[in-house]
Design a protein around this nucleic acid. Structure first.
Lengths: 243, 243
DNA sequence: TCAATAGTGTCTGTGAGACACTATATC
DNA sequence: GATATAGTGTCTCACAGACACTATTGA
């Protein structure tokens, strides 16, 4: 039986941490800040902030996203991924954290906040390989997994692109996030036949070489009824290794 | 600009509310308690409890599940569904609630706790039609949606069944939760060909009439790579934001 | 012309759904 | 025998993947 002091309801501070993903130079990047205050002073961490009096936790995440990237979170899909509540996960005291996933088109360099030494887009593979503050390595890992699944079941891939994008742009998103190679012909057909994913703009975009590609914008559909197949999901399906 | 008293970090109590689903008499049921204390005294509500000093929020949910049903939550899939953090959602003060989904085989009648007038299995369609305490109607709705999706992508359907079950039992789960009719022959083939979902027991179970059915137990696989197709009966949901 | 990228045609294998059929039980 | 439930065979259609082909641009 636990001691009296070890049980009973507890107050806590609640924070929202953000995993903001984008693609730059065909690499999946995550926005990491470098902490400027203890604990973990000088270590990379996910951006985040505490729940305030008159907001929801999603509001906290949107506010933080705006501060870090200038993006209006209300217009982006902000996905709840996980909840982290281990009693000793934060040396400052009892802090429960929700993680939100945001996916953005190629953005300008972020700016460091007041309590932050710097803010940078870090290659995800690199970010997963180095130690992060708190339990942020785990939070990041969970969010990446979540993003990969969202690509199968939703149209979120389009939010990695600019407002007007080509089908090849979209294919790059899938290939980068899943780290696989897809057949351009089959991908083309799949996307154009999928009702509501894409809307034609009637315009094209020139390439330095080759035939200009048709430009699309994101269609109204958000969830797919028939999921986009993801190759090499530990199955005997042959997928060419990438590069 | 907000007033000074309206902003700034805030402490909160955190609770885990449970949506415990089971199937009784081919109907999807949810465990609802009737509150015995204000606020919402006498109203039906989801069971739940507050985060305590030395536990995770999942631990809170498992403790509550054990108290309400006698089930060891650690051995059941307990799925985080949503997070509810509107500032005025609870008249007692700032309370942030996480909802967890639990799916159980046909259980005995639950017993009422100390602050609870009664606890009962309620038909889900009925529970969605009557007012519940707090924002529990929304929490319940979100959890049902989540359960329907989990049936497509995981083997959670088996947790609605007893340890040994027939393929027809499993089909009943899908039909009840999705509210559709499936072809028995095709369902049979689909399940038996799906690697790792089912394990043969070598035994059969007699029916009052007809050929005895082979009994299976749940296999090791938890997530499906190829989702079980859900007839497009009620695919009316677009992604609703959860806080 | 060639090289490069966009996009289409077409074949093949797999799997879902429809539904007829066989198998095994009770009455 | 009839009836009910379990389970299989088989046909068709749709779609994913492989890959050859056409289309449209710049050099």
């Amino acid at each position: 039986m636990p001691q009296e002091s070890d049980s009973g309801p507890v107050q806590a501070r609640i924070s929202a941490d953000l995993v903001i993903l984008t693609i730059r130079e065909s690499r999946l990047k995550v926005l990491l800040i470098v902490r400027g205050t203890p604990p973990f002073d000088g270590m990379p961490a996910l951006p985040g902030g505490f729940l305030e009096r008159n907001e929801t936790l999603r509001g906290t995440a949107e506010r933080e996203l705006l501060e870090e990237t200038g993006l209006q979170g209300g217009r982006l899909p902000l996905e709840l991924v996980g909840l982290y509540s281990e009693p000793d996960r934060d040396p400052r005291g009892r802090i429960v954290t929700a993680s939100y996933l945001a996916v953005a088109a190629n953005l300008d360099e972020p700016v460091a906040g007041s309590e932050t030494k710097s803010a940078n887009w870090i290659d995800v593979k690199m970010a997963l390989g180095e130690p992060l503050a708190f339990d942020h390595s785990r939070i990041l890992r969970d969010a990446i997994d979540h993003a990969r699944t969202l690509l199968e079941r939703t149209t979120i891939a389009a939010t990695f692109c600019d407002e007007h994008f080509t089908i090849r742009d979209l294919q790059d998103v899938y290939e980068t996030v899943w780290d696989v190679a897809l057949d351009p012909g089959n991908f083309q057909r799949k996307m154009t036949r999928m009702e509501g994913f894409l809307e034609e703009t009637g315009t094209t975009r020139k390439s330095p070489y080759g035939r200009p590609a048709a430009l699309y914008r994101r269609g109204p559909v958000r969830t797919l009824q028939t999921s986009i197949f993801r190759p090499s999901a530990s199955l005997d399906r042959q997928s060419r290794p990438r590069d």
